[in-house]
Design a protein around this nucleic acid. Structure first.
Length: 565
RNA sequence: UGGGGAAUAGUGUAACGGCAGCACAACUGACUCUGGAUCAGUUAGUCUAGGUUCAAAUCCUAGUUCCCCAGCCA
């Protein structure tokens, strides 16, 4: 087995599932095959929780020389759409995984499932039930009491066959009958109390159109789909543990190949909502701009935000796999992102909240080009030219007229460095009638060109800047957590989860960029020095570039300020 | 009050009867032309109570707490 090392963020690590696979391989089970599958329902976009499952299933197949299928569990046409199928395929590929030609659908197996249902009817193990949904629910019993047998439970095989055939033929109204497995209404496991296998539902299916008016339930379709595909390790989330006895029952009664199901805990993350139903709600109610809104925890949202697939894979490796509910700190995801982008993202200078700096002793009308390093972490990234002139923008928060003790940026009388340019010393400020600062006046030291003082004197701060005359305008979208609470489901008294939405999750600002950024292309990522990582939006466009803030840089000054608040 | 699962620093995980380790977070300090990055360090843990054993996070017994299940959703 591969060693886990900190230097190899993509290296596989061991977990209880991989241990099981290793044991099965050692014992020669399944002829030493390893075959997994990722089985999404196409009823929404994939999110970071699915990434955990994708990395697990595809990752195990890769590590053990096996295969991983993509299978859409499309048994409920009333919720499923082709758009979701397409987005799911795109997102898995983006994450870096490939299923070759093994793209399957539960709907591929509808006819086989139907034949198997007939087989169970013939064996006396399934029956057509005329109870309404409400009646079925009433007779199911409770957690502590037994259910009651359906009055239709003992219909003859002939009658069941006849009715089931006519169900398929469309003779009965939606919801009027079901096919149920005949197991045990007294089972302490509610899933075994004669579960529904087929319901009558006239809805157009995204693949089978109107061929069917009866659809298999997930419980009836899932295990057999795995069996048909000869899946060796059927990995799913904890809530299906209770269903395992049912899947085993079906496969045993049918006498077909039995995959081994293994359950793991789904991902929870602070400040993040991972309920597909609620994400759908955010989209439908237009709380966000769509499934790919950069604040969404969907893979398409993260992609648009500027996350790299590598960072998400690294995250999935680090969180591990277990059988108990846990909540991962979103700071870990952000760490994985910064770790990756720090290595790869070219640097640039941008001012998000500009204040003008006038260099009093810089020759009027003059400009020059200075060399700037593209990526200090990667010498091969080279350097670029950045224009400098007597009127610049710096960040408003980089200047304070009356600075507190630990502030060591620009203030009256103080000297700082402009990155890759000159040392400047503040000589004063200009104010408007309301007393607001409209410009900062400075002098520069021509001897410090490039950013080093020949006399060896030091400054305590280095500021980013943009030449006013050369600046490129851009729209910058500053994102923060979509939810203001670590646990978004923790609703306030009398409220609901939507009350936890963060009102400041998006701020749009007009920024001044260094001119090299004018040619940035959609999806390109940069570090704006001292600010964070930014990515050119790949959906919206206008006459100016649009940048999404992927993440801020770690900011010890901001932390310091919080402490004193 | 039925059944099925699970409990290790603040968080996520490792240790498979033999030194409780790693990562994130937090906090110090060093270094720095990004208050970034990097480096060094600090704080902090086996749910509880018994038992077996030379030795228990690990095995046994009892308890506690948490999660899942009463869709013709998945």
């Amino acid at each position: 087995m591969t060693e886990t090392t900190d230097n190899a963020p993509e290296a596989p690590r061991s977990d209880f599932i991989r241990d099981i696979v290793t044991q099965d391989l050692a014992s020669g089970k399944n002829d030493s095959r390893v075959h997994t599958r990722f089985p999404p329902e196409p009823n929404g976009y994939l999110h970071i929780g699915h990434a955990k499952s994708i990395c697990l299933n595809f990752g195990i197949a890769q590590e053990f020389g096996g295969l991983c299928n993509l299978r859409f569990d499309d048994t409920n046409p009333s919720k499923e759409e082709q758009e979701y199928v397409d987005s799911i395929k795109q997102d898995i590929r983006w994450l870096g995984f490939d299923w070759d030609d093994r793209e399957f659908y539960a709907s591929d197996y509808f006819e086989q499932l139907y034949q198997w249902a007939i087989e169970l009817i013939r064996k006396g193990k399934a029956y057509v039930c005329d109870l309404t949904g409400e009646e079925v629910s009433k007779t199911r019993g409770s957690l502590t009491t037994k259910g009651q047998d359906s009055p239709y439970r003992n219909r003859s095989v002939e009658e069941n066959l006849d009715l089931f055939t006519r169900m398929r033929a469309g003779e009965f109204a939606d919801g009027s009958r079901t096919l149920r497995a005949k197991i045990d209404m007294a089972s302490p496991n509610l899933n075994m109390r004669d579960p529904v296998m087929y319901r009558i539902l006239r809805a157009e299916h995204h693949r089978t159109g109107n061929d069917w008016c009866i659809y298999p339930t997930y419980d009836w379709a899932h295990g057999q789909s795995d069996s048909i595909e000869r899946i060796t390790h059927s990995i799913c989330t904890l809530e299906f543990e209770n269903h395992r006895p049912l899947y085993d029952w079906f496969v045993r009664e049918l006498g077909i190949y039995a995959p081994r199901q293994i359950e793991f805990a789904r991902l929870n993350m602070t400040y993040t909502m991972l309920s597909k139903r609620r994400l759908l709600q955010l989209v439908q109610e237009k709380t966000v701009s769509g499934w790919d809104d950069p604040r969404m925890p969907t893979l398409s949202g993260y992609r648009r935000r500027g996350y790299t697939p590598e960072s998400i894979r690294s995250f999935c490796r680090r969180i591990g796999v277990n059988k108990y509910d846990s909540t991962v700190d979103i700071a870990l995801l952000e760490h994985c992102l910064r770790e990756d982008l720090n290595r790869r993202a070219p640097r640039a200078m941008a001012v998000l909240d500009p204040i003008k700096v006038i260099i009093e002793n810089y020759p009027t009308g003059q400009a020059e080009e200075l060399d700037a390093v593209n990526n200090p972490e990667d010498p091969s990234a080279g350097s670029r030219k950045v224009p400098f002139s007597g009127e610049l923008y710096i960040e408003r928060e980089d200047f304070m007229e009356n600075p507190p003790k630990k502030f060591f940026r620009l203030s009256p009388g103080r000297e700082v460095r402009l990155r890759y340019a000159y040392f400047i010393t503040c000589t004063g400020v200009e104010k408007n009638a309301d007393g607001e600062i409209t410009a900062v006046r400075c002098t520069y030291d021509p001897a410090t060109r490039g950013g080093d003082a020949p006399d060896g004197r030091k400054v305590k701060a280095t500021l980013h800047w943009v030449s006013a005359a050369h600046a490129v305008q851009a729209q910058v979208r500053l994102y923060d957590h979509l939810f203001a609470k670590p646990d978004p489901s923790d609703a306030p008294e009398g409220g609901d989860w939507k009350d936890n939405l963060n009102p400041d999750s998006l701020k749009i600002v007009q920024a001044q960029l260094e001119p090299s950024l004018a040619k940035a292309r959609a999806g390109e990522r940069f570090q704006f020095e001292r600010l964070g990582y930014f990515c050119v939006d790949s959906v919206d466009s206008s006459d100016q570039p649009i940048f999404n803030r992927t993440a801020t840089l770690k900011d010890t000054w901001a932390k310091e300020q919080k402490k004193t608040q």
